[in-house]
């Protein structure tokens, strides 16, 4: 059961986001930001599925996880870049994408970071939370329909829920990793880290459920009001 939550729940959660977004793109909105998100969640699902496949053979998977924060920073930053209207907000969104890529190159490519880079995750989450607030502000100034009928609002709420909820885990994961490496009770800390990652996966999965519910709800409402 624990293995399922710590390893297999991740590809399932990403798959849920991917499926919901694909459904929404097919039924309601095929504009670039949605397609961009579909590409991101498609890649993330594939990446996490690859991690799950390699789990049984106990292969080292930290580089896959580090690739995931790279994808998250670049694609979510790009998504907000497409949504932002003011040039300075676009610059911040581009900065998050470029900054993530630069950080990844410095740490994982040049620096050969051997461990799960939770600092990278923390920085990406911080950047994304800033973009979410800027975007919600823009949305509130321009929106004429009900917020709950707006996909961008739903999705920004899901991202806020996930990135704020996981922030404390990302922030402290590296600290525990190094503590585990130096400690005598490494196994005990390893179990605790697994539990922390389970909490993260549950938040990720809940975000996926909210996305699926939101996209289905908006699609149904839009079809009901248009027919």
């Amino acid at each position: 059961m624990k293995i399922y939550f710590s390893t297999y729940l991740e590809p399932v959660a990403f798959g849920l986001y991917f499926g919901a977004l694909l459904y929404y793109a097919r039924k309601v909105d095929r504009r670039r930001p949605i397609v961009w998100l579909c590409v991101y969640y498609g890649l993330a699902t594939a990446l996490m599925a690859r991690v799950s496949i390699g789990f049984k053979s106990q292969e080292v998977n930290t580089h896959f996880y580090n690739m995931l924060y790279l994808l998250t920073g670049v694609f979510v930053g790009g998504y907000y870049f497409l949504l932002m209207q003011r040039p300075w907000k676009k610059v911040i969104a581009a900065g998050v994408s470029a900054g993530t890529a630069l950080y990844y190159i410095m740490n994982s490519v040049v620096g050969h970071q051997p461990y799960f880079d939770s600092i990278g995750y923390t920085l990406v989450s911080l950047g994304i939370v800033i973009l979410i607030f800027l975007h919600l502000l823009q949305l509130l100034q321009n929106i004429t329909e009900r917020l709950s009928m707006n996909f961008e609002f739903w999705f920004s709420c899901v991202l806020l829920f996930y990135h704020l909820g996981s922030f404390a885990i990302f922030l402290t994961y590296n600290y525990f990793t190094y503590k585990m490496l130096a400690a005598d009770n490494a196994n005990e800390i390893g179990i605790i880290l697994t539990y922390l990652w389970i909490v993260h996966n549950v938040i990720l999965f809940l975000g996926g459920l909210i996305t699926a519910y939101g996209t289905a709800w908006i699609s149904r409402r839009k079809f009901t009001s248009s027919s």
């Binding site: 829920f161 704020l164 909820g165 922030f167 885990i169």
Partner: peptide, 14 residues
Amino acid sequence: IIVIASVFLLLVAV
């Protein structure tokens, strides 16, 4: 503390 912080941040988001 981490769990409390996570729950707190989740509540902040909500």
